[in-house]
């Protein structure tokens, strides 16, 4: 867990919520849910050790792995 990343994402999320507070009140429920979900999921993701967590890059690695001999020198 990278403390700097967690701190930064927490501050960013808090700032975004403060910055958009007036607009959040005006939008319909579906968009409000999406906004909250995006911010909450981002905050939760910050707690992982992201550089060493398998992610989309690993998915593409495994997907296009068989094609790798085509591009090796």
């Amino acid at each position: 867990m990278n403390k700097a990343l967690v701190a930064e994402v927490t501050i960013a999320v808090a700032f975004i919520v403060w910055f958009e507070r007036k607009r959040v009140k005006k939008i319909p429920g579906k968009e409000r849910t999406l906004f909250v979900l995006l911010l909450l999921s981002a905050w939760i993701m910050a707690f992982f050790d992201l550089p060493n967590t398998p992610g989309l890059a690993s998915v593409f690695d495994s997907l296009f792995g068989p094609l790798r001999p085509l591009v090796e020198e």
């Binding site: 990343l5 930064e8 994402v9 960013a12 999320v13 975004i16 910055f19 958009e20 607009r23 959040v24 939008i27 319909p28 579906k30 968009e31 999406l34 906004f35 995006l38 911010l39 981002a42 993701m45 910050a46 992201l50 550089p51 060493n52 967590t53 398998p54 992610g55 989309l56 890059a57 690993s58």
Partner: peptide, 24 residues
């Protein structure tokens, strides 16, 4: 969605996460 402006900053935070994810 009707308004894209709400999601821009949360997506930017997600981009920071994606830039670190899986690349040690």
């Amino acid at each position: 969605l009707k308004d894209y402006r709400m999601v821009v900053y949360p997506l930017a935070v997600w981009c920071v996460l994606f830039s670190l994810w899986d690349y040690p």
